[in-house]
């Protein structure tokens, strides 16, 4: 049985290191409508994710903060870039596309993965998939909390 042996470079592309060294979305938002904490139980990494929702119901701002490895920090930075400006339904679709990418499943062609394509190689490192997913599962949780709040009011 042969196991594919992807290289270290396939995981740590230059683009990923750029995001890691200067992540986007660290600034506090004017208004934080929801703040959610996520945690990776494997390594203890934490992410703090906040959303600002505009009057049009779209995501006006994303703050991603926390302590993590190059994979989770860059994934959070890319999340910021991809989710700002999206409707909540589009944000859900983006999360689904990211998960599909990390499972090697097809992604609907209308979805733009942006810089997340550089993280595609993570799927060959099963233990690290959780690192790449952490900001996105936290976003998923934030959206659900936000929607639950909306239904109540």
């Amino acid at each position: 049985m042969s196991i594919p042996e992807p290289s270290f470079e396939a995981l740590y592309r230059d683009l990923i290191l750029d995001h890691y060294k200067a992540p986007h979305g660290k600034k506090p938002l004017a208004r934080e409508d929801i703040v959610t904490e996520g945690m990776n139980p494997v390594c203890g990494d934490e992410v703090d994710l906040a959303l600002e929702i505009g009057a049009d119901g779209r995501v006006a701002g994303v703050r991603v903060d926390g302590r993590g490895c190059a994979i989770s920090v860059s994934s959070g930075s890319i999340l910021h870039d991809l989710v700002v400006g999206k409707s909540l339904a589009e944000a859900h679709a983006q999360i689904a596309a990211v998960k599909a990418t990390l499972q090697g499943a097809p992604v609907p062609k209308e979805i733009d993965l942006g810089d997340f394509e550089a993280l595609e190689g993570v799927r060959h490192f099963p233990v690290r998939v959780k690192c790449a997913l952490l900001p996105w599962t936290t976003l998923d949780q934030a959206l659900r909390e936000l929607e639950a709040k909306g239904e109540k009011s």
Binding site: S7, F8, L11, Y12, V42, C43, G44, D45, R67, G68, C69, A70, I71, V73, F125, R128, C131
Partner: peptide
């Protein structure tokens, strides 16, 4: 980050170390 260090040591040098909270958060 310890994960990045451990992944490099494994991929480039074949060195197995542990990275994480070691079940002692």
């Amino acid at each position: 980050h310890p994960h990045d260090v451990a992944q490099f040591l494994d991929a480039e040098r074949g060195i197995a170390i542990r990275a994480g909270h070691h079940c002692a958060q």
